[in-house]
Nucleic acid binder design. Structure first.
Lengths: 203, 203
DNA sequence: CTTCTAAAGGAACTTCAGTTCCGTTAATGT
DNA sequence: ACATTAACGGAACTGAAGTTCCTTTAGAAG
């Protein structure tokens, strides 16, 4: 009596289906990290995942589909935020974490590929935006705490502060190609904190 | 007695060669803007440029090669900077200009595609970084003027200020997907000016 | 104007990403 | 445990992106 009209993997998501998904997403992540979007061959991903290529084409269809699913998976996992007791410290900790991610040998290229994928595919873009919305929400409490401590003006938008902190790192990473080092991260943190104190992020 | 070892287009860069390059870069720009990297077929570009596809494959080889050449071409053109007499005004003018570019129906998607291309190809990345290095240098005088007027602390790095201004706009454009509106541009300008005044960009 | 050859162009060919077909395996409900 | 069928997997097929080969056009130099 099953309709089987949904996408493959929806009616029987357990057991083999889940194992296949895990193996394929892992292999796709490896491929993306080292060849970038455009260098990924779904048949190769299937082979490295130990899975039939028909399966990959049927369930994900395109590299963009894989990226969207991978971002959905990544959105599930959570990242513990810092709580140093001061806005500067919390922002510095987050900046350091972003720096570490973007300069990591695997994560850096992977994020670059995911963002590049989102640039040319609406579905991947939606998944990417959702991922970052969640990440930004996870870190906003740093700013809420600072508001509670009266470090920054009432009305300051927490999400805007987190975005302002992240932006310079991503800008160098994706656009200008300037070096990403601990100094850059520290500068991003102190500049954002200064701007926040001056009321630049009050909505 | 010619060696003919250089890339095609180097020995006889004038006349037909130049016309072909112009037509191909234009067609490639159109294709990138409306299909994004990955959706570009070089045979189609050749057809739309009214040029043999062999020519496109021989001179540029790949979409990435075309992107690199396009960025080299774009780096040639110059953009007039604002001079309102105050740092806030100059930065607001630049932010508005970036906003206009990124939200433009043709330029927005084109820049997205160019940046995505740079994410997976070293040659395109080098061309992109060169392009932005030039753009940042063109706008740095805004900050130098502010330094001369003692609006901001001595030792402030002009390029860093321009990057800090650009970053939030590009971050929304490429990463978070948050709306790009005049308010965002104004906030970027005032936040950057405030951070600069506080000495956050002193090297 | 003539020569030389760099660069463009056309068409056939090759290769491989992506599809289709159909048989096999195993997840779910009773 | 059994039946049902969702989902997987192997292999042959297809089409178009990209290559090769050779001919034609036209830019640069004398």
């Amino acid at each position: 009596m099953n309709q089987a009209t949904g996408a493959p993997g929806t009616a029987r998501p357990g057991g083999r289906t889940a194992r296949v998904r895990e193996a394929v997403l892992r292999a796709a992540g490896d491929a993306l990290a080292d060849k970038g979007i455009g260098g990924v061959d779904l048949a190769e991903v299937a082979r490295r995942a130990g899975v039939g290529k028909t399966t990959v084409y049927r369930r994900w269809g395109t590299v963009h589909g894989l990226v969207a699913d991978m971002l959905a998976e990544m959105a599930e996992s959570s990242l513990p935020r810092a709580a140093t007791g001061a806005l500067d410290g919390d922002l510095a900790a987050l900046a350091a974490l972003i720096l570490k991610t973007l300069t990591d040998d695997r994560q850096g290229p992977l994020f670059k590929a995911l963002i590049a994928a989102a640039a040319s595919d609406p579905e991947a873009a939606a998944a990417l935006h959702r991922f970052y919305r969640l990440r930004i929400d996870e870190w906003s409490p740093c700013v809420t705490d600072a508001l509670a401590r009266k470090e920054i003006p009432a009305g300051t938008d927490p999400a805007e502060v987190i975005r302002a902190l992240s932006a310079p790192l991503y800008y160098r990473f994706l656009v200008s190609g300037d070096p990403l080092d601990p100094d850059t991260a520290k500068r991003a943190a102190s500049a954002t904190a200064a701007a926040a104190r001056s009321g630049a992020y009050v909505v």
